[in-house]
Amino acid sequence: MKRAVGALLCVALVACAGILGLTRPASTQFPHRAHVIAGVTCTKCHQGVEAGGPGLHLPDDASCLTCHAKPHDTRSCLGCHVPPGRIEALVEAKQHLIFDHAKHLKGEAQGNCMRCHVGVADGDARMRPVMATCFKCHGEAQSARKCDGCHKDLAEDGSLPQSHLAHDGNWVRDHGMRAASSGDLCETCHKQSFCADCHGQTVPTLTSRRRLADPFSASAHRAGFSARHSLEARADPGACATCHQPDKCIACHTAKQVAGDTRATPHPRGWVGLTSAENLHGREARRDPAACASCHGGAGEKLCVQCHAVGGVGGTPHPPGWSSRQPLSAMPCRLCHPIGAR
């Protein structure tokens, strides 16, 4: 029985391997290092690279056959000896980057390809230079955040950073913490409209951000958020106020008849009463005052003042030891503290 289960698991794994993208990298990795050690120069295979130009300068079968006289297969050499997706990535890079091999080979590199393609010495896994390699010579571009020297249109091509500031995990929640000290870095890719889509005060959301085609796109208000927003707000007090003005909620709440001059109320029984046990509102208001302000802000504050003004039946709403730099004549103090009252 155990053998049968084991065999079944093996079959399932093999069947899933294709779906999961599991391949044998060693068989498709091109042995650059072995060619260099054998004394094959880069330009022998990558013909024309020293002259630059628009092509990819990849070797064709004919250039391989100058040395490998007896191919073991009739298929194209690059069809098997290059990892899947690598050539497509190269084409994409060519579309999005401004780069001229000819200029670089004549300049600092002085004909030495390995000055940038350091991966040849390390092995064959990563041949394209990482950005840190570029910055060894182009440090001024990094410090001035001048990305357009290499990137044709960073804001549009959708590139994501691969290491630090990688937009993974729960980036929507954490971006503020990460971006706080790297605001200028964010601006190298993100336009103002990107920030204003959430932090802007004049429109609820941009149409372009309502990505019907991509349910995987990150958003603070995913899927059925309108149904569960009260639960989310209660579990994370103040979260709404980090982006929204408190009065942003009242228009919707009034229209839906959960606030304003309507008989409907979202509050449970015992919200306001004569005894402390019947006065849930005080405790809840302290937990998330922004939630109260979302409906009772502005003119609605008078509702609170009726009971909590100096001498009122509601007593003082301040906690012990509370202090403020505001003078009593300023808002909101003067609502409850008429001139002369303390």
Partner: peptide, 28 residues
């Protein structure tokens, strides 16, 4: 792997002109 911690006081996120900024400080 990311480790994170956060402390927030909702009353301090409100404008000081709001009546609800004076009712105390219950952080989460």
């Amino acid at each position: 792997t990311e480790l994170y911690a956060r402390h927030r006081s909702p009353s301090h996120l409100l404008p000081a002109t709001s009546l609800f900024s004076v009712i105390g400080d219950v952080p989460s």
